[in-house]
Design a protein around this nucleic acid. Structure first.
Lengths: 172, 172
DNA sequence: CTACGTGCAAAGCTTTTGCATGGAA
DNA sequence: TTCCATGCAAAAGCTTTGCACGTAG
């Protein structure tokens, strides 16, 4: 499916009091909506790994299931939007014209170095970034809620001169 | 005899006082392409103001012109991509599912505070940001080429409690 | 009984592309 | 002649939506 997988995860998950599924249920309640089997299947799937993902990834997976966990394309899209609103996932970038998501709950805020050659997304965690931004925002009376930061460049792997270059997927 | 491609590159790297149109022409030369009336019309239009913009904005404008400055939709898209490659403009964000661009030449690298209520984009310039990122990238053997940073939150205007809220429909 | 959800197919949207025509060198 | 460019229309591709049918409460 050809995109970006973060192969460098140096971050550790944070302990959460409530499971993602529970948090989703609570969110839905506040909107008078229900936690259906389909919606639960999606949250569970999405939280089964810490990798970045796009909609298609779960579509090919969940639309082929049988029984209660089988979910349609539209429902997946609809649910992903709900998960974003619920604060469980967030959009991190765009790759191949697709929205790329990641967990936004039980996982520290971090940013990415994105290799323009192989597309790899390297996560990094640096508190100075948020602190600096918080300061900048405050100076302008701006109430910061979050940020999105992508560093563009070439990863160590792809910088290495000789023959073996890191796989290059989709460069225009 | 004519001149060599490498001469052009050196020149543009040194000479900063070149107009956008000239810089575009030089870039096109290095690719064996020409600065057509259509391409010139687009650069000129794009650099006629310093605002952020999206493709549609110039499409509605330029496709209605008459004579030499009339440009088709496809040519506009094709040219915007060229302008990005030429380093004259860059993509800053996405708004309404459209790519939003801004000038990337004759203007310092900066970032944005984006108000989630009224959509206003507040530019700010802070060298610490790039320095910090450069350091972070280096620690990981990553060759940074640039970055894209959006701070999400609520602007001072919209934070002001009561009646009059800042409102702006089109968020560009 | 009512309101919310799901699936399917079709529509929507921005952006890209194939192709024939036209023009500069 | 030989490419490079443009316009038009159609294609791409991801995401959203209209609609009818189910089903939880």
């Amino acid at each position: 499916m050809g995109f970006v997988v973060s192969d460098v995860i140096e971050l550790s998950a944070v302990d959460v009091a409530v499971t993602p599924v529970e948090k989703f249920r609570e969110f839905l309640l506040t909107r008078g909506m229900r936690l259906t089997p389909e919606r639960e299947a999606i949250v569970t799937a999405v939280y089964s790994t810490h990798d970045h993902f796009d909609a298609e990834q779960w579509i090919t997976d969940l639309t082929r299931q049988k029984g209660a966990s089988r979910v349609s394309r539209s429902t997946i899209y609809r649910s992903l939007n709900l998960l974003v609103e619920a604060g469980l996932i967030r959009k991190v970038a765009r790759s191949n014209d697709r929205e790329v998501y990641e967990h936004d709950y039980g996982y520290p805020q971090h940013d990415h170095l994105i290799c323009r050659k192989c597309g790899t997304m390297i996560e990094f965690l640096n508190t100075e970034v948020s602190e600096l931004l918080e300061r900048i925002a405050q100076e302008r009376g701006f109430r910061m809620a979050g940020h999105r930061l992508e560093v563009d460049g070439v990863c160590a792997e792809c910088s290495r001169p000789p023959k073996r270059q890191h796989r290059k997927l989709d460069m225009i």
